[in-house]
Design a protein around this nucleic acid. Structure first.
Length: 421
RNA sequence: GUGGUCGUAGCUCAAUGGUAGAGCCCCAGAUUGUGGUUCUGGUUGUUGCGGGUUCGAGUCCCGUCGGCCACCCCA
């Protein structure tokens, strides 16, 4: 174990990585706000108990958990939904329904890392609480699609596969399968796409034939038809397809469930979500009962997809390059002028300009090189010209002399922006 | 957690069991006030770590840690 590296599955974000991460966060936030969602944040550490029996063994078996110094069994959150359900149950009377909340945070799982899956990742969570109507499901799927579209991704790049757990519970009810077995059977159906057919058949027993037939024929229901219709009305039908093989591993889902994949089938799921109408009631012991639905989208797989699609990658690189640029580089050509330069640097920064300068005596050539590398649009040179300042437009290399008293106005004109902070 | 595979400078990679190298990056210069060019010089390794075989190990063997891939599983 070297101290020079982060722990397995954890990442450091160097400036370039951080810029890319912020690019993703900014778009997540922008699109969620476009849909009228408000941002919130929950605690990153929770009692381990919160996840037991609510999320399913999948997540609980891979919790990043430990005993704290107060002998509490705690876990770094693997997902947001249980926290959301708890918070909503405790505060629901403070808000009009439906709630439309989103959150951007870090989540943890203790498992062996692999491409696309680390022990830590960031995800966008968008949830709608207190709305039974299918319109909420349609809105949520549309939001999920629009989040990807804002990265320059199209229906040729990704697809949302949609299913309905009620489709399967109805299927099981018709065949008189006791409700206690539903969860278990749904898990088997969920895995059917990932394991050999005969192994699944063995687990399903005499249900194997009808299940396989249904998976093969694609499944169909009035609710799923209406869902697709709603998306078609928004012009988003090309982004979705019905796939009743999608069940999702989490035990708390009750209705519509969906997962988002890259069309090329190269990566694991980019996002996933669905309805969890009973979870809030379960966590509050029946004190509060509200229908709910939501989805989560992780940064790791999304980044991989963006890097894979040239259009999306270039858009990100362009935005990142633009964001790191400074506005003005101040060249101190004569050290006697340093104090005068710093006085004006302070004024420029107060006005909101991004300004940099050399902190120690530096050759002029190096200073211009630094200006170039920092992407500055303007260089201000303080030297023998004082009380005038030499203003250089770096892209055009044009120079002019401005009296230092008129500099702020001149700079403001150059950038064509207001001069208030 | 299981299996496979890999591990050499900050990065990308060389080095038939016989003295550890290149490019890039970084730093400093090229007669003292103008830019991603050019030239010169310079730093960096206990070859992931620990054992073993051998006259001699970056190279072969074992262990360990870490990366990648598959399984498991999937936020």
């Amino acid at each position: 174990m070297t101290l020079m590296q982060p722990l397995p599955g954890f990442r450091d974000f160097l400036p370039e990585d951080c810029a890319k991460r912020n690019y993703i966060f900014a778009r997540w936030r922008r699109v969620a706000r476009r849909y009228g969602f408000v941002e919130w944040e929950g605690s990153p550490l929770e009692p381990t108990e919160l996840y037991k029996k609510k999320s399913g063994d999948e997540i609980v078996g891979q919790l990043f958990n430990f005993t704290d110094k107060g002998e509490r069994e705690v876990a770094l959150r693997p997902e947001l939904t249980p926290t959301l359900a708890r918070v909503v149950a405790a505060h629901e009377r403070e808000f009009k329904k439906p709630l439309k909340w989103f959150s951007i945070g870090q989540f943890f799982r203790y498992e062996k890392q692999q491409r696309g899956r680390l022990r830590e990742h960031f995800q966008l969570n968008c949830d709608i609480i207190g709305e039974n109507d299918l319109a909420a499901d349609i809105e949520l799927v549309a939001l999920c699609i629009d989040v990807l579209r804002t990265f320059g991704l199209t229906e040729k790049d990704f697809v949302v596969r949609i299913s309905d757990r009620e489709f399967w519970t109805g299927f099981l009810r018709e065949r008189n399968v006791p409700a206690e077995r539903w969860d278990e059977l749904l898990q088997i159906i969920d895995r059917s796409g990932r394991e050999p057919r005969d192994k699944t058949a063995e687990k399903l027993g005499k249900l194997a034939e009808p299940v396989f037939a249904t998976l093969h024929s694609g499944g169909k229901s009035e609710k799923l038809d209406r869902l697709i219709g709603g998306l078609r009305a928004r012009g988003l039908a090309d982004f979705v397809q019905i796939d009743v093989g999608i069940v999702r591993g989490l035990a708390y889902y009750t209705g519509i469930v969906f997962e988002l994949f890259d069309r090329a089938g190269k990566f694991r799921a980019i996002a996933g979500g669905g309805r969890y109408d009973n979870l809030i009631a379960q966590l509050s012991d029946g004190a509060v009962s509200l229908p709910a639905l939501g989805f989560a989208m992780g940064d790791v797989v999304l980044s991989e997809l963006i890097n894979e699609i040239p259009r999306a990658r270039e858009a990100m690189q362009k935005a990142v390059a633009s964001d790191r640029k400074i506005d003005i580089y101040v060249v101190i050509a004569k050290e006697e002028r340093r104090a005068d330069a710093l006085a004006q640097i302070q004024q420029l920064r107060d006005r909101g300009y991004r300004v940099d300068y050399p902190m120690t005596p530096t050759k002029v050539a190096r200073q211009f090189q630094a200006a170039e590398e920092a992407g500055a649009a303007l260089a201000l040179l303080y030297g023998d010209e004082w009380p005038q300042v030499k203003v250089k437009n770096l892209p055009t290399r044009e120079e002019s002399l401005i009296d230092h008293g008129a500099l702020l106005d001149s700079v403001a004109k150059f950038f064509n922006v207001g001069s208030s902070a």
